[in-house]
Design a protein around this nucleic acid. Structure first.
Length: 495
RNA sequence: GGUCGGUUUGCCGAGUGGCUAGGCGACGGUCUGCAAAACCGUUUACACCAGUUCGAAUCUGGUACCGACCUCCA
């Protein structure tokens, strides 16, 4: 009887009943990508996870404002150079040209995975004024200090007052950075090793820099999220999401900045998605253990035996819970491909099915209704897509049985059948955001020719001309069209 | 070293103090000209060692192994 949505709040470390701050409305902020290079598959998993969460909240009837930023300044390399300008130099582009290029590619990838656009997609460089204002507010409140043109957040002072620094990530300030990395830039300017820069003075060769009351410089890399979430969602909002590798230091510092500025906790619920692994290790650009989405689509990678379509990859991701790690293997992708295709076949069949009316309330009818209820409670239980998907496959079983005549329409009521149809389509297409990749490409010409070939083959079969019949079947299969001989004649589908 | 999480059947992955997760694969069957598809049936596991309990894969303690974070990361 889990009719209420519960979410796992990373901050509380437990599941909590979801109650939005303002009834009927949800504010959600998710940390977006740093657009200094091509988006990789791990990022995709995170954004697909939050897309499903976004879609489900919409499905529940909430008016959702979903903010996902684009980071185009402030992320530094180990050498202290901005990632964007470092890459821009390599590609011989202006930094903002590079940002545009990879933002476009990111948006294309999000579209390929059929994710909904966020309501607002702010960029860090578009919010320099607000960032400078927040630095000033934090300074005014006494939780930051200036040192040679840079401004640092005073974690000790903050912790003295609020006792909460490190709470999200379970860290204690005294134990932090006992072994300070001495290669870090300007480490000596800080009063405490756990202090972090909210404004950094730029060196002469640093390209991306702006004027501020303290120096010509650039914002610290945690600041943008604090600023943009506050600007578009208010001082406190409902959900803050991101990959769990951002918990520390990014989200921890974000919380500190927000409280240091406004005095209140920014987010009511913190949701963290887990990592996508490959070969049992975190998929990561920096150590080469990675596969790009395009490599996965084309199969042009030593990690896969063939290419997999975006929806197969998305289906694969939905088979695990967003808070669990997921190991990408070729074998698992092959299994996902079969499962996805089974799902889409059922969707097509269901589309053509109509209940004639006058069904009875049998045991099967009861079982069907229970299955539908369970799918809903599974999604309400912290967006448990794998479990909900398992329930959807039980619906597939009902659909196929009805199609095959193993289950009679008279054994289920029209109401239950309509509910089956509605639930199936809502979950598969609206909530999971899957789509039939090949279905949309058909045109009348292709359709007509396929039907013609089926007619010719059936005539050959009637004459027991198995050679012609099998030739048509096998050649069609070679070009990716599978014929299916069923009770009601032959149908076909692309594979 | 510190913090956190994990170890589930042939593979991927949910879940839970007693009741079939699901997908894929495999095997048998129905259907079929033969296949494929679909359907039916079989395949039933929880790292290890203790403890709590009528009952533990689930709770507790310990051990082993794996992973993430600890100022680049979704």
């Amino acid at each position: 009887m889990k009719n209420k949505l519960t979410v796992y709040n990373s901050k509380a470390r437990k599941k909590e009943i979801f109650e939005p701050i303002h009834e009927g409305r949800v504010g959600m902020y998710v940390c977006g990508p740093t657009v200094y290079s091509e988006v990789h598959l791990g990022n995709v998993r995170t954004f697909v996870s939050f897309d499903v969460i976004y879609r489900y909240l919409l499905h529940l009837g909430y008016k959702v404002r979903y903010v996902r930023n684009i980071t185009d300044v402030g992320h530094l390399t180990d050498g202290g150079e901005d990632k964007v300008s470092a890459r821009a130099k390599l590609e011989q582009l202006e930094p903002m040209e590079l940002v545009q290029k990879y933002s476009n590619m990111f948006h294309e990838m999000m579209a390929i995975f059929n994710t909904k656009s966020p309501s607002v997609e702010p960029r860090a460089t578009g919010h320099l004024i607000e960032q400078i204002e927040m630095v000033r507010d934090i300074l005014d409140n006494g939780f930051a200090y200036e040192q040679n043109g840079s401004v640092y957040f005073d974690t000790l002072k903050f912790n003295d007052k609020y006792k909460s620094y490190g709470q999200l990530s379970g860290r204690k300030i005294d134990e932090l950075f006992s072994e300070t990395r001495d290669d870090l830039k300007n480490q000596n300017e800080k009063r405490h090793p756990s202090d972090f820069a909210i404004w950094m003075k730029a060196s002469d060769e640093h390209i991306m820099k702006w004027n501020s009351p303290w120096s010509v410089g650039f914002p610290g890399w945690h600041l943008e999220c604090s600023v943009m979430s506050t600007k578009y969602l208010g001082k406190t909002f409902d959900i803050h999401g991101g990959g769990n590798d951002l918990k520390f230091p990014h989200h921890e510092n974000e919380i500190a900045q927000n409280i240091g500025c406004t005095g209140v906790e920014p987010a009511k619920y913190w949701l963290h998605s887990n990592m996508l692994l490959m070969n049992g290790k975190k998929m990561s650009k920096s150590d080469g253990n990675t596969i790009s989405p395009y490599e996965l689509f084309t199969g042009n990678s030593p990690h896969v035996s063939k290419g997999y379509s975006p929806m197969v990859v998305k289906f694969f991701m939905l088979q695990s819970h967003y808070r669990s790690t997921m190991d990408l293997t070729d074998q698992a992708l092959q299994a996902a491909e079969k499962g996805y295709s089974k799902l889409m076949e059922a969707a097509k069949a269901l589309d053509k099915m109509e209940h004639p009316g006058n069904g009875n309330e049998t045991e099967n009818n009861k079982k069907l209704l229970t299955t539908i209820d369970n799918i809903i409670s599974d999604m309400n239980d912290d967006f448990n897509t794998p479990k909900a998907l398992a329930g959807v496959f039980e619906l597939v079983n009902f659909i196929n049985k009805l199609k095959d005549g193993h289950l009679k329409y008279s054994d289920i009521t029209k109401e239950a059948f309509d509910k089956l149809k509605e639930t199936f389509n809502q979950f598969v297409f609206d909530i999971f955001g899957l789509k039939d990749e090949v279905g949309g490409q058909e045109d009348g010409l292709f359709d007509g020719m396929a039907e013609l070939l089926i007619t010719i083959r059936n005539e050959a079969r009637a004459k027991k001309d198995w050679a012609t019949s099998d030739l048509i079947r096998d050649k069609l299969l070679e070009i990716g069209v599978q014929l299916k001989d069923g009770k009601d004649g032959t149908s076909w589908s692309r594979i």
